[in-house]
Amino acid sequence: MTEAYPPRGRVDRERIQRAVREILVAVGEDPEREGLLGTPRRVAEAYEYLFSGLREDPLRHLQVGFMEDYRDLIIVRDIYLASLCEHHLLPFIGRAHVAYAPRGKVVGISKLARLVEGYARRPQLQERLTSQIADALYEGLGSRGSLVIVEADHSCMTMRGVQKPGSVTVTSASRGIYREDGALRSELTDLILRGREI
Score class of each variant (00 low, 15 high):
residue 143 S to G: 06
residue 59 L to G: 14
residue 131 S to C: 00
residue 158 T to N: 05
residue 83 S to M: 07
residue 128 R to Q: 14
residue 179 R to I: 04
residue 152 A to R: 02
residue 173 A to M: 10
residue 80 Y to A: 14
residue 67 M to T: 13
residue 119 Y to P: 00
residue 95 R to H: 06
residue 163 Q to H: 11
residue 191 L to N: 03
residue 146 S to T: 11
residue 168 V to E: 01
residue 148 V to W: 01
residue 128 R to P: 14
residue 112 L to R: 00
residue 154 H to K: 15
residue 148 V to C: 13
residue 88 H to D: 12
residue 138 Y to V: 01
residue 157 M to I: 08
residue 106 V to C: 03
residue 110 S to G: 08
residue 84 L to V: 15
residue 90 L to V: 13
residue 61 H to E: 12
residue 190 D to G: 15
residue 141 L to Q: 10
residue 162 V to P: 06
residue 142 G to I: 06
residue 86 E to N: 05
residue 124 Q to H: 04
residue 62 L to G: 06
residue 111 K to T: 09
residue 155 S to A: 15
residue 130 T to N: 00
residue 53 G to W: 05
residue 133 I to W: 02
residue 134 A to C: 10
residue 74 I to L: 13
residue 80 Y to V: 09
residue 184 L to H: 02
residue 173 A to C: 13
residue 130 T to V: 12
residue 59 L to N: 11
residue 106 V to A: 05
residue 101 A to Q: 01
residue 126 Q to P: 12
residue 97 H to W: 05
residue 176 G to E: 03
residue 153 D to G: 13
residue 83 S to P: 08
residue 129 L to S: 05
residue 61 H to Y: 15
residue 194 R to T: 13
residue 126 Q to H: 12
residue 182 G to K: 10
residue 188 L to P: 12
residue 137 L to V: 11
residue 151 E to I: 12
residue 73 L to R: 11
residue 159 M to K: 09
residue 157 M to P: 10
residue 175 R to L: 05
residue 135 D to M: 07
residue 86 E to Y: 06
residue 96 A to W: 09
residue 138 Y to K: 00
residue 139 E to R: 09
residue 157 M to T: 02
residue 79 I to K: 09
residue 177 I to L: 06
residue 92 F to D: 07
residue 166 G to S: 04
residue 107 V to Y: 02
residue 59 L to S: 12
residue 137 L to T: 11
residue 89 L to K: 11
residue 137 L to Q: 07
residue 62 L to R: 00
residue 172 S to V: 07
residue 191 L to G: 09
residue 58 P to G: 00
residue 129 L to I: 03
residue 189 T to F: 09
residue 134 A to R: 01
residue 192 I to S: 01
residue 187 E to P: 14
residue 61 H to D: 10
residue 135 D to E: 06
residue 178 Y to Q: 02
residue 131 S to W: 06
residue 139 E to T: 13
residue 177 I to H: 01
residue 77 R to N: 12
residue 179 R to K: 12
residue 81 L to Y: 07
residue 187 E to L: 15
residue 174 S to D: 04
residue 117 E to R: 00
residue 125 L to K: 10
residue 94 G to A: 11
residue 133 I to V: 13
residue 106 V to T: 11
residue 94 G to K: 00
residue 133 I to S: 05
residue 163 Q to S: 14
residue 159 M to R: 15
residue 147 L to E: 08
residue 66 F to N: 06
residue 56 E to W: 04
residue 182 G to R: 06
residue 121 R to N: 03
residue 194 R to P: 12
residue 102 P to R: 05
residue 67 M to L: 08
residue 163 Q to G: 03
residue 164 K to E: 07
residue 108 G to C: 09
residue 171 T to S: 11
residue 151 E to D: 15
residue 72 D to S: 13
residue 158 T to P: 11
residue 125 L to D: 11
residue 67 M to N: 06
residue 118 G to V: 09
residue 122 R to L: 07
residue 119 Y to C: 04
residue 144 R to C: 07
residue 106 V to K: 03
residue 134 A to N: 07
residue 125 L to V: 14
residue 185 R to F: 08
residue 131 S to G: 04
residue 194 R to I: 12
residue 87 H to L: 10
residue 129 L to A: 03
residue 95 R to S: 15
residue 132 Q to R: 08
residue 170 V to P: 10
residue 56 E to R: 05
residue 163 Q to A: 15
residue 70 Y to P: 00
residue 109 I to G: 01
residue 138 Y to F: 05
residue 139 E to D: 11
residue 103 R to D: 15
residue 119 Y to G: 03
residue 106 V to R: 08
residue 74 I to G: 02
residue 75 I to V: 15
residue 120 A to L: 04
residue 112 L to Y: 00
residue 127 E to N: 05
residue 133 I to P: 11
